[in-house]
Computed example of a mutant assay.
Amino acid sequence: MNDIKELILDKAKERMDRFGFKKTTMDEISKDCKISKKTIYEHFTDKEDMFRCLLLRECQQTMKLLFSRLENVADPFEKLILLIKTAVTYFNQDHFITRLLKDEDALFLTISNKKYHEYIDEEVISIIAGVIREGKQQGKFRDVDEKIVAYAGFKLFQAFSYARTGQLYQEQDEQHYTAVLVDFILHGLVKK
């Protein structure tokens, strides 16, 4: 991505994070960037296209951050443990991408569009399925449908992090819930 496009996305991120999608205008982003609206439209067809690019950039950066820690881990069992722990910790913090995915204040109504969620889900599930496939090939994981198990594991992860729909028991901390989630998922996968 070129520098101007990155600048536009950075300024759009700042403004959308503060005011939400609906209240952010191309004029304001243009002023923030100190460039013309015409320049913005050379890079994005409209505000939704800009938001889509911003969302994809943020998701790719987040996935890169989370999955980069797995590069030097050869054991698929350890990869899944590290991935779950790292991801739960990350998504329980206050990051732009977490606020987008939670969208508690309805600042990002376009995020509710299924195609954005589907893109994110497909990417993550594909990577998790690859780790499960690797574990099966090494004889460490049971013979399971890796895509279905990856999907189920991802949905469990969401329930323990940004997509939590209810309060977890207050007397337990995040590490306890992460340990329970890791135990549950891996005991379903590990070959006995």
Rank of each mutant, 00 (worst) to 15 (best):
N92W: 01
E58H: 01
I29W: 00
L66V: 00
F19M: 11
I84C: 13
Q93D: 06
L66A: 00
F21W: 15
D94H: 11
I29E: 07
E78W: 02
L56N: 11
L80A: 03
M50S: 01
E42H: 14
C33W: 01
K37S: 06
H43D: 06
K22R: 15
N92G: 05
L82F: 08
M26G: 02
N72T: 11
K34V: 01
H43Q: 13
F77Y: 15
Q93T: 13
M63S: 03
V73C: 08
L70G: 06
K64A: 05
M26K: 09
D27S: 14
F77R: 13
K11E: 15
E48N: 13
I84K: 09
D49L: 07
I84Y: 11
L80H: 07
I29G: 03
L7M: 15
L80P: 01
I97V: 09
V73S: 06
K37F: 07
A87L: 03
C33I: 02
F91S: 00
N72A: 12
D10I: 02
F21R: 11
C53T: 12
P76Q: 10
Y41S: 07
L66Q: 01
S36N: 06
L82C: 11
I97P: 09
Q61S: 05
S30L: 03
L56M: 13
Y41R: 08
D27C: 05
T62N: 03
L7N: 08
R99W: 00
